[in-house]
């Protein structure tokens, strides 16, 4: 299997506090990889470093064989690393379709005259773009909401729109930061199915969760972070049995 993302020795310090300490992660192509850890373990900081949202104090990030350490987030995204956020970051006053179409930004390649003067080429590309996005919304069962403003959608559907926007960019790596947070149980189950189906369709997904139960059931690989350090890494069955992981999760039931 090809490795698509490899981070080595990533470190981030905030003042005297080391949020992430010398952490490694390896994600294989077409895998559904989980990054878990208790609250405050440094998961989001770790992912922010990988995706270029936060700066890196030490270590390297390799993406599709290229050294991408320290590149800014829009640059990472344009290389094919899309992500969602823990607290939703949507274009609230815009329609669902417009949100998702924006996600295809890196694939729309007409240049200067076609953006400033709406040429036949612009029209052609935009129509194709719209159709693709509608098809995606169709797949995610969002088509009925295509023209509604994001701001008035219920919470669960907003999370789905955010995922749709990231998927629309056809990323080679999709990073989802706690997509299940705040969802009721039935929705979490559906989310799991969506993720599995994404993976089957050839997507590589790195998913961050503190809900260990969800990931155990669907992931191909897991990395466990605790207090900024990686304490376990491997297939779910092995990670589950790791004494350090059990210790880190003491007092917590698996499906908390």
């Amino acid at each position: 299997m090809t490795v698509i993302l490899e981070a080595r020795g990533l470190t981030r310090k905030f003042g005297g506090l080391t949020a992430v300490d010398n952490a490694d992660i390896t994600v294989d192509e077409h895998a559904l990889h989980g990054l878990i850890g208790p609250n405050g373990a440094g998961k989001t900081t770790f992912v922010n470093m990988i995706t270029g949202v936060d700066s890196i104090d030490g270590g390297t990030v390799t993406f599709e064989g290229k050294d991408v350490t320290g590149l800014r987030s829009f640059h990472m995204a344009s290389l094919g690393m899309a992500r969602s956020f823990q607290t939703s970051q949507l274009f609230e006053e815009e329609s669902v379709l417009s949100n998702v179409m924006a996600g295809r930004h890196r694939h729309i390649d007409y240049g200067f005259p076609h953006t400033f003067f709406y040429t036949p080429k612009t029209s052609r590309v935009e129509r194709a773009n719209r159709e693709r996005c509608m098809a995606l919304l169709e797949q995610l069962n969002l088509a009925d909401d295509a023209k509604r403003l994001v701001a008035e959608l219920p919470y669960g559907r907003r999370r789905l729109v955010e995922m749709a926007r990231a998927i629309a960019s056809e990323p080679s790596l999709l990073v989802l930061d706690e997509p299940a947070a705040g969802l009721p149980g039935s929705d979490v189950e559906a989310l799991g199915e969506t993720l599995v189906s994404l993976s089957k369709n050839g997507y590589t997904v790195l998913i961050i969760e503190h809900n260990i139960g969800l990931l155990m059931s669907i992931c191909d690989g897991l990395t466990v972070l605790s207090e900024g350090r990686v304490i376990a890494d491997g297939v779910p069955s092995v990670v589950r049995a790791d004494p350090q992981v059990i210790e880190a999760y003491i007092g917590r039931s698996d499906d908390a």
Binding site: T51, V53, R72, S73, F74, H75, A77, S78, A82, R83, S84, F85, Q89, L90, F91, E92, E93, E94, S98, A102, G103, H105, R106, R165, A166, S169
Partner: peptide, 17 residues
């Protein structure tokens, strides 16, 4: 639009705000 509504999200989909 993306830059205006949410710069963080804009950058996450490859837009150099």
């Amino acid at each position: 639009m993306a830059t205006r509504e949410s710069p963080i999200a804009a950058r996450s989909i490859g837009i150099d705000t």
